[in-house]
Design a protein around this nucleic acid. Structure first.
Lengths: 339, 339
DNA sequence: CTGAAAGCGCTAACAG
DNA sequence: CTGTTAGCGCTTTCAG
């Protein structure tokens, strides 16, 4: 920088002001011009480390996550956070702790040592977490809710998502709608919330929920198949005409079961999934109607409040809508069940 | 830091030395003890920014990638890079440029301004790239090869992977092995390389490749299905008993085609995929034998050479082995084709 | 064995 | 309108 100053015949202070556009009204255009030319000539590159030391702002935000690797959704969240960061001229420092407490401690220490301007604590699937000790109070939680409140957080609105799914089926004329849920032992908050949504919509429609239509299995394709098979073995009058599946993988299994029983989708059976998981939802035959998880949007939101663009309410997690994606797996119930 | 010094009754220089373990032999144990206690008492946290400014080392490495979001493999690469970085006490700064030249320029500038110690340039699928102008000479390329040489790079050994796949089929007794390739217009280096591997193994086995068995389609499930169907319509003597598919998605389509034709896998038809893509390979019925892409390992390698732990050869990209994952989609050919 | 002092590259008061 | 100056928090010779 002193090179530039010398070359332009001014002081470093002037160079700094010109190049940062600060107080630019107070510096003569000719000088500004000279400075810029000198900077260009010297190939001047500002040193952000020095600037950060001086300004106490690094324009970096730390993103600590439990596992970037394991879910295809992680990327969407990162992308959202990244995009906002870039728009704001910030960089994101990523740390993957693999859910290890010691690693989390180290990460936090490294990040605070690095003086990041903000911290986002991200989970790769929706859950409630005991936040690590030492997480700054203004850190924002992404795809998780704090066990003991008091922090800005964003999670998908699973309840509304479940409602949307069931409404879709209701609108198509179904009355006997099953919910293929995840087993309780997985202790998924999404499971509870989606089920609540299911129940609420049924209640609103004046339909008495049939406990036989709420089945649980492992939330993977195999589990979905098995659960769907159980449902399809019910006597005809009790058999569901539609299935709302906890996730797309289970929906995939439901397809397999329908196929096995010689049932066509959506002719004989309608199916709705959840997650809008790439490589499944759109690739199934017929393409699956499902509820999308708003990972990109949550990533954006988290970064926006982290950077102070938005105000997060510490009292209660922000609920991000889960849009329903209409494809071709929902139709009217088979004739004998119609009205 | 001066607080600590005052509290311990020493100078900041001494504090620095003690806390960094530098020249520790030259400082009396009592003093060291006192310093440590003072640091503890004050809750001293070193400021890496200041340290970086002084030492000209940030212990951060920039990872610029074209798209973190779009492939499920991205996470594995990040994870590999991250793990090594953590082991070495480094942080990774992630920038996603979405393959936009202007964004790349900005990213590079931001990273060099931030004085990162090293840069990794990652692609989310194997290709040859024109590296962005301004990419430092010692940057390492991850999952891509430089169009105009001279840089450390790591890519999957697709050729060997193709060979392994075909050998697997050969070993099971197949002679009529098809290759369901990606269409040329996608211009995938993986396609060319895997095909070379296919040809070479056939040649080694003394099998004349039948051009009719090399078919191309869009590298997705639908394309695989269509290509497989074409193959299955061949007169019985020319029909393949095994299919090596460019990727798992095409293999998924091949399964659908076999199913459509009433053929069982692996009884009537053996199938090998490529990618070991989660949610496909292991979840297909029967589970798919496939060749895995070593994303995690490539991520590690890239970070290791970026940090100088390993020496990369700038003359030629490092080839990372693609292990074959044996599952249940390969068996002997149907009896009438046996020997 | 320990302290003083210089300086990493930049910014922001304050003077002129 | 522009220059001087004093640090940001740390490391590292060089003297004691």
């Amino acid at each position: 920088m002193s090179d530039v100053a010398a070359r332009a015949g001014v002081s470093t202070a002037t160079v700094s002001m010109v190049l940062n556009g600060v107080n630019s009204t107070r510096i003569s255009p000719q000088t500004q011009q000279r400075v810029r030319e000198a900077a260009e000539a010297v190939g001047y590159k500002p040193n952000s480390v020095a600037r950060s030391l001086r300004t106490q702002q690094t324009r970096m935000v730390g993103l600590i996550s439990d596992t970037i690797a394991s879910t295809p959704f992680a990327g969407r969240m990162l992308a959202g956070a990244n995009d906002v960061a870039r728009e704001q001229g910030h960089l994101v420092v990523l740390v993957d702790t693999e859910r290890d407490v010691e690693a989390e401690r180290q990460a936090l220490q490294a990040l605070s040592g690095q003086q990041v301007d903000a911290i986002i604590y991200a989970c790769m699937w929706h859950r409630v977490v005991e936040v690590p000790e030492g997480l700054p109070g203004d850190a924002v939680l992404l795809d998780c809710a704090p066990a003991s409140g008091g922090r800005a957080a964003v999670v998908p609105d699973e309840r509304a998502g479940g409602m949307a799914a069931v409404r879709e089926l209701l609108a198509a004329g179904h009355r006997r709608i099953a919910f293929l849920d995840a087993e309780k032992r997985f202790d998924l908050v999404a499971s509870r919330l989606r089920y609540e949504g299911y129940l609420e919509v049924l209640a609103d429609a004046g339909i008495e929920p049939d406990p036989a239509l709420h089945v649980r299995a492992e939330p993977v394709a195999g589990g979905g198949r098995e659960a769907a098979l159980r449902l399809l073995e019910l006597p005809e009058q009790r058999r569901p005409t539609a299935m709302f599946c906890f996730n797309d993988r289970m929906a995939m299994g439901a397809y397999a079961a329908a196929h096995h029983c010689g049932l066509s989708i959506p002719g004989d059976l309608s199916v709705v999934g959840y997650d809008d998981q790439q490589l499944i939802a759109a690739d199934l035959d017929p393409p699956l109607t499902t509820v999308a998880l708003p990972h990109y949007e949550m990533g954006r939101w988290a970064m926006e409040v982290a950077l102070g663009l938005l105000k997060g309410d510490p009292a209660v997690p922000h609920l991000m809508p889960c849009p329903i994606i209409r494809r071709a797996s929902v139709g009217p119930p088979p004739a004998q069940f119609g009205d």
